[in-house]
Write a protein that binds this DNA or RNA. Structure first.
Lengths: 239, 239
DNA sequence: GTCTATAGTTCGATAGAC
DNA sequence: GTCTATCGAACTATAGAC
């Protein structure tokens, strides 16, 4: 784009694209703070310092704006996740479960991270959408996250000996649930621990979350195996 | 209150209380479906079959209505959680970690459960509020859930040998995070597993979640212990 | 691409009768 | 306690000039 702005006559989209992106930035933050329904187009326009009508020119509707916000970061994040996963499996050594869980969580918090915030806005937006039951959130979750989710489920199935497909899906869901508790900077851990826990410190959280999730996964397998053995011994088919 | 309705002349609040509760029921469901900002007072009034003004008479503002909705069920749920926790510790035998985690989760899904729904409305409302960063949700979470949370953290600390206070708080937060993934009936597990997993089947979910969380907790302790030993051996104070 | 101005709707809340 | 009627503000979206 600096090549284009070198031609003085064509000032195509230097100013223009900046406004387009300013809108996305403002929307990301305000959607994250207030949720979809709580956010106002006027408010977003003011934060982006553009006319309200310009948002509709670029994104048509409020819903279109949300989708653009989600698409932009999701593609960054899930691209990075995919690359990390590929890298883990391309060597001759089998990756550890810990590496896979780390690859699951880290890109979400590192992509677009600004050190002046506890958490990037998009992370907070993701959390507020993730557990929503409305159709809008469901559609976006399916569209942008199901693909990569299946890749991680496959990876878990491949790396964890004896895990069933069903349990692999369950533990993936639980891992995401744990991740959510990390990504929403509610301040609650600090409050409940009299300051011992700091949910602004991502590295501290990751160093506890990864062992928790990995042990949880292995524990589910151990539990299923022991139940299966018990079943076989007693000869019952269904407990 | 049945003592009062026995006096025939005072018909204080039999019809009246029914409308009051119809409003709470309708609000609970609509808040759960649409979130606070997505829900409309008109919509709630219509669902409860009362005039919109009556809601303001009973609860003043929309925010007051939300608080009343939360207060009603939270007191039921956390009362039941407290009783289960007490019962576990009053015998001479020490409870298992599994019992504590079960006491943590089950009341939330069983209180107010109607068999015709996948999940009761309040559970869904809780999920949508739990990870919200807005002040309203923070205030309610602190007011109605911090007390019982501390009791569960204490219980974990007492039952799990070698766990630090800090880790006890972290794993409590993670457990809640996992619980959220169970309580929001998004349909995603079914989609990702081609129907193997059914997030409408609470018992199936609980039978995987409890081992996951308990193993996760024990894994965090094992990890912390091994790091501590490594530290002591190499003589470093901070890694 | 970007703006101003505004149409048309819906919102939360209140006044006042019964 | 419960209703009808309505106020004023905020909302999303669009028309049309530049």
């Amino acid at each position: 784009m600096s090549a284009q702005s070198a031609l003085k006559t064509r000032h195509v989209s230097d100013q223009g694209t900046r406004k387009h992106d300013r809108i996305l930035d403002a929307a990301e933050q305000i959607f994250a703070d207030s949720g979809f329904d709580g956010a106002g187009m006027r408010q977003i326009a003011e934060a982006a310092d553009v006319a309200q009508a310009l948002i509709h020119y670029h994104f048509e509707t409020k819903e279109g704006l949300l989708e653009a916000v989600v698409a932009r970061r999701s593609n960054q994040i899930n691209g990075e996740r995919g690359r990390l996963l590929d890298a883990l499996f391309e060597g001759e050594r089998r990756p550890q479960l810990e590496d896979i869980i780390e690859a699951l969580f880290r890109p979400t918090i590192s992509v677009g991270h600004r050190p002046d915030q506890k958490r990037n806005s998009f992370t907070r937006l993701l959390v507020s959408m993730a557990n929503s039951a409305d159709k809008r959130s469901k559609k976006l979750a399916g569209e942008y996250y199901d693909g990569i989710a299946l890749r991680f489920i496959d990876a878990i199935e491949k790396i964890v000996p004896g895990i069933s497909r069903k349990d692999a899906v369950w533990v993936y869901m639980f891992a995401i649930g744990v991740g959510m508790s990390m990504m929403a900077p509610t301040g609650r851990p600090g409050r409940l621990s009299d300051g011992l826990c700091d949910d602004g410190d991502i590295e501290q959280m990751l160093s506890v979350i990864v062992p928790f999730v990995c042990a949880g996964i292995r524990g589910v397998v151990a539990d299923a195996t022991s139940k299966l053995e018990l079943q076989t011994k007693t000869g019952r088919k269904n407990p």
